[in-house]
Amino acid sequence: MRLDRFICKHTAHSHQTSRRLVASGHAEVDGCIITDPRHAVTAFSTIRLDGQLLQQQQPHYIMLHKPAGYLSATSDPEHKTVLELLPSTLRPKLHIAGRLDRATTGLLILTNDGLWSRRITAPEEKIPKIYLVTTAEPISPDAEARFQQGIWLAREGVMTSPATIERLSEHCCRLTIFEGRHHQVKRMFAAIGNAVTALHRERMGPITLDEQLRPGEFRLLTDSERTAI
């Protein structure tokens, strides 16, 4: 957003007055006086007008080892949510980048940076999501070929992108998909006549679940993890 528009939106000043105030040196962004009304600001710019703080918000990028039994939601009247695993000081304005259902465990990313999280979750970005899958029945010999061809998801009316399977045992595999549709992994296995009994997300794009995190624990993403997206 332009600085003059931000000031107009967050104060009682008109757009014309906001533009004049910026041009005459009344506005400060991240500690610097800005005189260009067109200067771009973000949700994480610290903005002052005549010394009065209008905005100050720190970006947060969090890796959580999600345990089973928690909803991937910010609030729920009946069930525990993943936000309850975080300190209250970190919770405001956080959202989940790629939800997991209540029974699924593993890597969950929470952030207050919407532009950043969209790069992970937008289907057109084709970010790989890697899951450890355990099935009720032996994984069929044609599973690789079926998943490579794509599975039709009738609810959305779409075909999944080609997915890959790394067989680990008769009932266990490592699956890589490139979307994140509702219950997608379980629906893909149901389409080939099998049921998922356990599901654990290991990785999203370049971000891998930290093996030192126990279920329910979290840490901030490193700068290299954050900028890799």
Results as ranks from 00 to 15, higher is better:
Arg2Gln: 05
Cys8Trp: 12
Lys9Ala: 14
Thr11Ser: 05
Ala12His: 13
Ala12Gln: 14
His15Ala: 14
Ser18Ile: 03
Arg20Leu: 13
Gly25Asp: 00
Gly25Thr: 04
His26Phe: 11
Asp30Pro: 08
Ile34Asn: 05
Ala40His: 09
Val41Asn: 03
Ser45Cys: 02
Ser45Arg: 02
Arg48Ser: 08
Leu49Ile: 01
Gly51Met: 03
Gln52Arg: 15
Leu54Lys: 00
Gln55Ser: 06
Pro59Ser: 07
Leu71Ser: 12
Pro77Cys: 01
Lys80Phe: 13
Thr81Ile: 03
Pro87Thr: 05
Lys93Asp: 15
Ile96Asp: 04
Ala97Arg: 08
Gly98Val: 09
Leu100Ser: 01
Asp101Thr: 06
Leu115Lys: 15
Trp116Asp: 03
Ser117Trp: 02
Arg118Ile: 05
Ala122Thr: 13
Ala122Met: 11
Lys129Thr: 10
Ile130Asp: 01
Leu132Asn: 10
Val133Trp: 03
Ala136Thr: 07
Glu137His: 12
Ile139Trp: 00
Ala143Gly: 09
Arg146Lys: 14
Phe147Leu: 15
Gly150Ile: 09
Gly157Phe: 00
Glu166Lys: 15
Arg167Pro: 11
Ser169Tyr: 03
Glu170Ala: 14
Cys172Trp: 06
Arg174Cys: 12
Leu175Cys: 07
Thr176Glu: 05
Thr176Asn: 09
Arg181Trp: 10
His182Trp: 10
Val185Gln: 01
Lys186Met: 06
Arg187Tyr: 06
Phe189Glu: 00
Ala191Pro: 10
Ala191Ile: 05
Gly193Val: 13
Asn194Tyr: 12
Asn194Val: 11
Ala195Pro: 06
Val196Ser: 03
Ala198Tyr: 11
Ala198Ser: 15
Met204Gly: 10
Met204Thr: 15
Pro206Gln: 13
Thr208Asn: 08
Leu209His: 02
Leu209Met: 04
Arg214Tyr: 08
Thr227Ala: 11
